[in-house]
Amino acid sequence: MSDPSTDQIKEEMRQYVLNEFLPGEKASNLHDDTPLRSSSIIDSVGLLRMIEFIENRYTIQVEAHEAGVENFDRIEDIATFIQNKRGAGA
């Protein structure tokens, strides 16, 4: 598998969030900058499951101190975080 681009990661994360947390919602209503944690779209348990998904999908390790809203509140931040992690680990 070739490395996904940031845009691909955003789309994958959008699909994941829609399937897991927003069943029935249109993709066009979930923007790159829609708040996910502060809006309760994803609760604390949902965040743990999402991180587990991200770790497996992108083969990165998310440390406990990295799991805050600064990295996980918006799809664009999540994608940037994943790319940075992948870059750092490469």
Binding site: F21, L22, P23, G24, E25, K26, N29, L30, T34, P35, S38, S39, S40, I41, D43
Partner: peptide, 25 residues
Amino acid sequence: PSIVDLKVFCSKALPAYMSPDAFLF
């Protein structure tokens, strides 16, 4: 309203543990 709108609305009106998991129109 979009489901995202309703989620955001609930986050302002209710404690997080009460926010519905799914909205069906």
